[in-house]
Structure formats: structure tokens, C-alpha cells
Design a protein around this nucleic acid. Structure first.
Lengths: 219, 219
DNA sequence: AAATGTATGTTGAAATTTCAACAGATGGAG
DNA sequence: CTCCATCTGTTGAAATTTCAACATACATTT
């Protein structure tokens, strides 16, 4: 487990926990690590929802696909970030989404009950990790809320601008890089890729934004 | 505090806690109750986000003002329901929304740190209330997730059918009543009311659904 | 440098949604 | 019962989005 320390230190689930205690704790939590190839399914819809996942390397996407094959990206999870914790903490039986490795990835899994229930060793860091988990779940809540704020706008332009302005605020700068390609951004905003490209072009010509690949600037 | 027992018993934050313990606990948590007149601001944007609010009587609205100055109502909170818990649990410094009393209301406030950190008395119910709070936050998370699943569909018809099928599943029956009028349903689905009415009419004529006022049947 | 595959921008026609306006239905209040 | 306010359904025109198709740009491999 030691080779993952750098990533795990950054994981909010382990905030305030020292390295030596972290290693011990991972054993106590029965953490295990799996490896996935690009585009491999990490968790398929319908599987038990009892695990919390931590991305150690790579990227995974939380996706929903309807019967026409339209993909909606609910979130992209990067190294040191968590997924699946809401379903586990709410006591949901089966997970209602697909989790897919967007590139070659390593994922750590922890059975959520090991966190929410005191371990038999009464491990002294349990209080901290429960508090951390609460914070993670609440933060994700705010992210969902933000996605709804964005996608509830009625036009492609308003969705895009709402997204970009929130990113600028989050980054504390008018120049920033986004974690999506055009198709990914279109899926996140829930609009057509071509329509999005057209709107980006229009905003550029109007001098409202500037962009090159994943870099955007709001003027 | 005794006069609020009926409402508090229904609040999921206190699930599994007996009346006598609840009274004691409220003291331990330093719960305080404030009174608000109709249209009075309960919490203004920018104030510290450290409190969890519980509506004891009346109704409060969570409102948001976007970049362009448009005000939108995010949610209405009714007696025994919570608000502010996501911001408090996520450790957000300043609350990014306005909370306004929609009518004369009584609100109980609890400093969230009193919940998430063990009290000095090591009150024996702390574990239960932390677990409850986690479940509340995680469940709200799933509600948002479901709304995203519905509104990410691209057409009014698909949104409506996705919503109705989820309701049918939730109610365990093809006949059920929904908690919205047409305008409310349109707002939830993020579509035009007139377009929604038209689509409902079409689905009726096609024999896919049946409905009268708030009652729907999926055939 | 050429070849290949993928991502992005562009376009016009088709489909859908929004908008405004109105008519019928419904439910209270007097 | 009548009046009034609100909710719901309907309609057609305007605006927008989707869709399919293709051109260009870019990156990687050979």
C-alpha cells in the first residue's frame, strides 16, 4: 500500500491522518486495490452499492446511458477522489449508474460499513474518518446541486456561460482549463456536441470568450 | 422544547431517538429556536454556513440569484425538514443562497459542529445522530441524482416517461399520485408547461398513459 | 513525410421546444 | 348560482436544438 501514499494523502477521506496511521488504518478497513484498462467497466449498474471507491491513478466517469445510447456524464472522478459513497451511505442496495475507467486506472475499494461502524479494534482514528466521509458526501451534494443549476438553464449558451463562470470563480481566475473534451463537455451540459461547438464559435466571434483546446478565458 | 416534540419526532435527524433522550440531547446540542415573520430573511447569502436549520412551523424557501441577477427558488422546506446541512457539513464558509420565510415560521438552529464532533459529555446518542445526518445528506444526494437522471433526457416525452416510470416503481403500482400541479411538474422536469400538456395529451391519445389531475396511470 | 484515426468546427434541413395567446375546466367565495 | 381567479389544454409561429454529413485540424504511428 505504501506506493499509494502520495495519492491517499490527498484524499479528503484521510484528511488529518498521519502516514503511519493511514497504513494501519487501510488494513483495519480491509482496503483492496484493483486495476482497470481504458474503457473497462469498474462497476456496472445493478451491482451491490456497499463499496466506496478511491481513484489512485487514471480517471473514472460516472455515466448513465439510456436505451437510445445517449450518454450522460454525471461526474468525472480523478486521482484521490471518491465515488460510490452516497449510495453506500444512504443504504442503497444496488448501484444505479455505470462507473467506467476513462483511461488505465487503479482503484481502491473500501467496504463502507467498515467506515460507518466502529471497528472492533476501536481504532482511534475512526471519528476522524467518519467526519471526513460526511464532508465528502456533503461536498458531492453541492456538486450535484451545481450541475443542476447549470443544466436547468434552457439554452446551450446559458448552460455554457453558467458553467464557465462557475469554473472561473472556482479557479479564481478568468483563465482556466476544463477536464472535458468537447464531447464530454456537451454530455455534461446535456446539449449536442455540434450545437456546443457552434455556440463556442459564436461567443468567440462576439469576443465574450477565448479558448484553445481545454483552456478557456472569459473576457 | 417540549411543544416541538411532535415535529421533531418526524425529523430524520432524530430517527431512533426516544423522546426523553431527545429533550436532553437538544440541550447538549445547544439548539435554539428563532421566530420569523412572513418574508423575513432567515439566512442571507454570505453569512456563515455553520448551522443546520429545522423548520418547526411555517415554510422557508431556498433562493438563489444567478450571474444575471435572476432569482430562482431552489427548494421549499416544510416542517420537520432540514436545510443548510450540506453547506455546514461540507465546511463551506459562507452560505451561497438566501433562506427566506415564506410565511410566519419557527426555526430551530443547531451548530453543525455540535453534531459532527463528540460533545464533551460524550452523550451516548451522538453516534446515532451522526449516522442519521450522514444518511440525510447521502439521501438528498440520491434525490439530486435522480433529478439529473430525469432531466438529462433530451425530449419532453422522455423526461416525462422517465419520471412517471420512476414514480410507478417507487410506489410499487402503475397508479399513483404526484405531488405537483402541471406547472410544478414542468418546472421539475425543466420543460415548458404548454409543451408538457401537449405531450401528456399525445401520450393519452396513444394509450400509453391515463391521468386525471395529479393521478397518473402507466398502461 | 505519409497514413491513419480521432477531435473539432461548420452547415442546412428536420424535428422539437418555446412563446404568446386564448378557451375551456375547475374550485372557491360571496 | 354566479363571479372570479387559477389551472389546464390547444394552437400556430418563432426560435432553438438535433441530426447527419462533411471539412479541417491535430496527434500518433510507421
Amino acid at each position: 500500500m505504501k506506493k499509494y501514499l502520495d495519492v491517499l494523502r490527498k484524499c479528503s477521506l484521510f484528511d488529518g491522518i498521519e502516514d503511519e496511521n493511514l497504513i494501519e488504518m487501510l488494513g483495519c478497513l480491509r482496503a483492496k486495490v484493483n486495476h482497470y484498462d481504458k474503457n473497462e467497466t469498474v462497476i456496472a449498474e445493478g451491482e451491490p452499492a456497499k463499496y466506496v471507491g478511491i481513484v489512485l491513478s487514471g480517471v473514472v466517469q460516472i455515466e448513465q446511458t439510456d436505451y437510445y445510447g445517449n450518454r450522460s456524464i454525471v461526474a468525472g472522478i480523478e486521482p484521490s477522489e471518491l465515488f460510490g459513497e452516497s449510495f453506500a451511505c444512504a443504504g442503497v442496495e444496488r448501484i444505479p449508474v455505470n462507473v467506467v475507467a476513462n483511461e488505465e486506472s487503479e482503484i481502491m475499494f473500501i467496504n463502507c460499513l467498515r467506515i460507518t461502524q466502529s471497528c472492533s479494534n476501536a481504532c482511534s482514528f475512526h471519528h476522524q474518518i467518519i467526519y471526513n466521509l460526511m464532508k465528502v458526501v456533503a461536498t458531492k451534494n453541492l456538486m450535484f446541486h451545481q450541475k443542476i443549476e447549470i443544466t436547468s438553464k434552457r439554452s446551450t449558451r446559458e448552460k455554457l456561460m453558467t458553467y464557465l463562470l462557475l469554473q472561473a470563480k472556482k479557479n479564481g481566475s478568468n483563465r482556466f482549463e476544463i477536464p472535458y473534451d468537447r464531447q464530454g463537455l456537451a454530455d455534461y451540459l446535456e446539449v449536442e456536441r455540434s450545437g456546443l461547438s457552434a455556440e463556442i464559435g459564436k461567443l468567440r466571434r462576439e469576443g465574450v470568450i477565448e479558448c484553445r483546446k481545454g483552456w478557456f478565458e472569459v473576457l
